[in-house]
Design a protein around this nucleic acid. Structure first.
Length: 213
DNA sequence: TGCCAGGCCCTCTTTAGGGCCTT
């Protein structure tokens, strides 16, 4: 019932012989936040980004960020990020400026990208930065690619697919690296299943079935 | 110390109801 069901096979043929791997860099990111609702005043507490190029992670960015918004207890318990930790962190606007410079014009990837896209846009706006993010979503892709997965939560998928883990769950860098490994796995699986060149970010967005952010 | 919102997508029938996923 509901979202547990698989949305069915890929919505389009994936055999375009003109495909060619362009060596594009993608920026995989993950926010830790004070909650799930930007509209309710939630803010980011930590951001991590890894750059993926030519099938591997080539660079990393990670920072706690200070917004002054208290972190609810259940979130502190979930993430391990406390008010004391963010109090000594750089201001959110500075982190976002650094993050935007780190990403450059690379298209972005996140697990449940709608969530990270909202916080990226919100924090960019508060920092006076343009929000030009184009997001692909590993959650939507996994629902199309891994129909037998018991769950499409990031950690469950990592376990199901035997992906490497680099740190504690619900910390930004560890989750980001997990999502990056998931992205690389999906690119490789699509390439293997369809016998063509590795899909770029735009093609992955097409395959996930929703428009780019 | 708040259990919140937003969007996708499935089921059962309809543009409604509800689970999943993110923190």
């Amino acid at each position: 019932m509901g979202g547990r069901g698989a949305p069915g096979p890929l919505p389009m043929s994936f055999t375009d012989p003109s495909d060619s791997f362009r060596g594009d860099t993608v920026a995989v990111l993950d926010f830790e936040t004070t909650g799930v609702s930007v509209s309710a005043g939630d803010r980011a507490t930590e951001l991590a980004i890894v750059l993926v190029r030519a099938g591997r992670i080539v660079d990393r960015f990670q920072s706690l960020m200070h917004t002054g918004v208290p972190i609810p207890w259940h979130i502190q318990r979930l993430t391990g990020i406390t008010d004391e930790m963010t109090a000594s962190a750089p201001p959110a606007a500075q982190v976002m400026r650094d993050a935007a410079a780190f990403v450059g014009d690379a298209p972005m990837v996140a697990h449940n990208a709608g969530f990270d896209r909202r916080f990226w846009g919100h924090e960019c706006g508060l920092a006076g930065l343009p929000d030009q993010g184009r997001f692909a979503c590993t959650l939507l892709l996994s629902r199309r690619l891994y129909l037998d997965a018991p769950s499409h939560k990031l950690g469950s998928l990592a376990e199901h697919l035997g992906l490497p883990r680099s740190g504690p769950a619900h910390r930004a860098l560890a989750d980001t690296e997990m999502a990056a490994h998931l992205w690389l796995r999906m690119v490789a699986d699509l390439q293997e299943r369809h016998g063509c060149a590795a899909p770029d970010h735009d093609r992955m967005v097409q395959l996930q079935g929703t428009p780019a952010g």
